[in-house]
Design a protein around this nucleic acid. Structure first.
Length: 513
DNA sequence: ATAGGGTTAG
């Protein structure tokens, strides 16, 4: 073209930006400047996504400065690009600030800020904004739903997820693959693996993310065989797994103790799928070996990593506790404190390992170090949703309004359990107290209180769904199996890594967890 | 005539 105006420049810049030719797009902006034309709102909203993708907040902020100098900050397009850029760069506060000072808002700018919150783990804030959007009479679009659904998945707020699902169907968005994948994930994470499978089966044009969400769902529920067959089917359909899909299949193997299968996927991932093992893959493998009791194999594997993290060593440390290997535990713990001195979980674990071995002095020393460092552990807690309200239980916390009734219900259950042959397993109670007190401590475990509350506040036959922030202890696992049989209920417990479905005295994990 | 937002993952 002999004469180019701002529109012709912008058209080509956006074309490059949208097709991955980022450097060319940016070079053209400079060239355009050389030709005496200054970037306008179209130019800026076309190039801001580049800095969002490359997580380059310095460049993004430069653009923001330019935006303010030229008074472009009132523009909706520029605002949503800025909101998106800041949240992709993990600066949610900045992105919310841009949103708040933008008076004029539309669905897209709302979506940008909501997605930003959710992607950065601020689920409650995301939900609050979503509700505010509806209150302000802004019509949600399909993107609004696929942005908010992960919040329900992470918070395991099944009822809210279901309500949104209904809303999605009324809008006719249920054929959208982004939304269906997020629904598969939400239902699986909320314990409804069958509903997840049903939605997955109905997706037309499944993509890799849909498959991965379903595979991960199976992994979470311990259905490794299903996960493997889905993974193989996906490949047959010509879909190449990415690093997340591989993480999902390794997690599935790990939760079912399938060492050989897991090892095979891990060994072949680079040549078969062109993906180099990342932290998440090492973590899954370390977990697989650890849970299986192959502590030395886990140690070897982690040692081959260039920079193992505290999190990965911790997987092995918790296996040292289960398999009562104090020597290795000490070695592993020192590795953890080297890279991550603040690691609370590791110190708690180490102290418990000592306690379990009767080494109360060493255990107390670790606790003392923690106190001196001013760190406290998060308390174990369980929660259950009844009538749209989430009830939280912490061991020894008496604040629940039905505290006394729950205690009575637990006593009655305890009697029936003992009649059925239950003997409290106090071996995991790591306090230097006598057996009678140990039994009392077990009995106060948060998941039991949550389950007792669930049984008394729902009609007979209703499935009880409880979520817990740490692993179920051996004794509670035994107790819940019996409870499911005594009260004739299905009890679904999600701990920090997977689901347990208790029914008629059995658990779906088959004692492997 | 040109521009902005989304699903899986320790």
């Amino acid at each position: 073209m002999t004469t180019r105006d701002i529109i012709s420049w912008n058209t080509v810049i956006a074309g490059n930006a949208q097709n991955g030719l980022h450097e060319d797009a940016l070079a053209m902006v400079r060239e355009m400047g050389g030709a005496g034309l200054k970037p306008d709102i179209f130019t800026l909203s076309a190039i801001l996504p580049i800095f969002a993708q490359y997580v380059d907040v310095d460049k993004g902020r430069e653009i923001h400065g330019y935006v303010i100098r030229y008074g472009f900050d009132k523009d909706l397009y520029v605002a949503s690009s800025l909101i998106n850029m800041y949240s992709r760069c993990a600066r949610v506060e900045d992105s919310i600030r841009v949103f708040k000072i933008t008076r004029q808002r539309d669905t897209i700018s709302w979506n940008s800020v909501i997605a930003g919150c959710v992607q950065n783990g601020m689920f409650d804030e995301g939900l609050r904004l979503f509700r505010q959007m509806l209150k302000d009479n802004v019509i949600p679009g399909s993107v609004s739903f696929s942005s908010i659904m992960p919040a329900c998945a992470h918070l395991t707020t099944l009822n809210l997820g279901k309500q949104l699902h209904g809303y999605i169907m009324r809008c006719g968005f249920d054929d959208n693959v982004f939304i269906s994948s997020s629904l598969v994930d939400m239902y699986a994470k909320c314990g409804h693996i069958r509903t997840a499978g049903w939605i997955f089966g109905g997706i037309k044009g499944r993509d890799m993310v849909s498959w991965t969400a379903m595979i991960m769902g199976c992994a979470l529920h311990g259905y490794a065989e299903d996960a493997i067959s889905l993974f193989e089917q996906m490949k047959l359909e010509g879909i190449r797994p990415n690093h997340v899909a591989i993480t999902a299949i390794l997690t599935a193997c790990s939760h079912a103790g399938m060492i050989d299968e897991g090892r095979r996927y891990f060994d072949r991932m680079t040549e078969e799928y062109g993906i180099r093992p990342g932290l998440e893959h090492y973590a899954a493998m370390a977990d697989l070996y650890s849970r299986k009791g192959k502590l030395n194999d886990a140690y070897q594997l982690i040692s081959t990593m260039t920079t193992p993290t505290g999190t990965i060593w911790s997987l092995l440390l918790s296996a040292c506790r289960v398999h009562k290997n104090v020597d290795l535990a000490e070695k592993v713990a020192s590795k953890i404190f080297e890279v991550d001195p603040e690691n609370i979980g590791a110190r708690v674990l180490l102290s418990n390992i000592y306690a379990n071995d009767g080494r109360w002095k060493e255990a107390a020393k670790v606790r003392m170090t923690m106190r001196n460092m001013g760190i406290r552990k998060n308390p174990a807690c369980s929660w259950i949703e009844v009538k749209n309200k989430i009830h939280t239980f912490i061991a020894d916390d008496k604040s629940h309004p039905l505290h006394d009734e729950i205690n009575i219900a637990l006593c009655e259950l305890q009697e029936k359990m003992e009649l059925a042959g239950y003997v409290a397993d106090t071996s995991e109670v790591l306090h230097d107290v006598d057996d009678e007190q140990k039994k009392y401590l077990l009995y106060g475990h948060s998941e039991r209180r949550a389950i007792a509350f669930g049984i008394m506040s729902t009609p007979a036959g209703t499935t009880i769904r409880v979520i817990k922030n740490i692993r179920i202890c051996v004794d509670c696992h035994t107790a819940i199996k019996l409870i499911s049989k005594i009260v004739g209920r299905e009890i679904v417990v999600r701990d920090n890594s997977r689901f347990h479905h208790f029914r008629d005295g059995e658990c779906s994990c088959g004692e492997y967890w």
